[in-house]
Simulated assay, not measured.
Amino acid sequence: MGIVSDDTSRGGVVALVGNPRPGSRTLVVAQRLAAGVAGLLNGAADPVTTLDLAEIAGQLLVQEGPDADRYRAVVASAAVAVIATPVYKASYTGLLKAFVDRYPAGALRGVLAVPVVVSASPAHSFVGEHLLRPLLVELGATVPVPSFAVVEGQLDDLQNRVDGWLEQNGEVLSRLALRADAVGVR
């Protein structure tokens, strides 16, 4: 799948997936939420850019990684970045960590980020708020809304979960994205 849209200048919505399995359920969750966010921001006129880190895993731990560098640029230019990970060992994946370690501190300044976690147990829903949010803030992203956490058993009702989250948080994201566009942040 890789990059669906390679246009880094438009500042649209990006879904970044840190699951080591290509085409994962985490990818489906991230795409669904990102599509909902894009619909709020621009009526879904622009496609969501999807980045599946499993497809470039071999480039994340080497110095020269042209696809990894391109992914970094796409995320850094996003208006909204939906950053998704499954929960492994009560944390985000090493794959996601290897990717974000390629950024210097503050590199995501101007990006609105939405942490997303997919877990087997509701007990691991804390990962989005207590581990992924601070990581994104360290990189300079603004994380103005609660993370989107879904348990594997809720995936059959995913669209209703996404719609509910957007109903509660979409207005904040929309206002901030419009404000960022108005002042030329990015």
Rank of each mutant, 00 (worst) to 15 (best):
D6I: 09
A105F: 11
K89A: 12
V143W: 06
F99P: 13
V117M: 02
L158N: 10
L131Q: 14
Y92M: 14
T49E: 00
S77C: 06
L136I: 03
G170C: 05
T85R: 08
G2Q: 15
A15V: 04
V80H: 06
L33M: 01
V75T: 10
F148H: 00
A113I: 05
V48N: 06
A105D: 14
A123Y: 07
L158S: 07
D163V: 01
E64Q: 14
F148G: 00
V145D: 05
D157S: 08
I56A: 15
L53P: 14
P115Q: 05
L176R: 14
V118Q: 10
R175H: 12
P144K: 12
P20R: 09
D69V: 13
P86M: 12
A76P: 03
A34E: 08
V82P: 02
P134S: 07
V111R: 11
L61A: 12
Q159S: 07
G12A: 05
E171Y: 13
V172Q: 13
L61W: 09
V28A: 14
G58A: 07
V172H: 10
V118K: 04
P47D: 15
L135D: 02
D101R: 09
V62P: 13
V183W: 15
A177V: 04
A57W: 12
S121Q: 10
A98N: 15
G164C: 03
V13A: 09
V48L: 01
T26A: 01
V143N: 08
V127N: 08
A54L: 03
R32A: 15
D52V: 07
A182L: 15
A30Q: 04
R25A: 14
L33R: 06
T8C: 06
R10C: 04
R25E: 13
H124I: 01
V137T: 13
L136H: 01
M1G: 15
D163Y: 02
V145A: 12
G39L: 03
E171D: 13
V74G: 00
S125W: 10
T142F: 03
P146M: 07
T8F: 12
D46M: 02
W165M: 00
T26L: 02
A76T: 04
A90I: 04
Q154C: 01
V127M: 08
S24V: 13
P122T: 10
V87N: 06
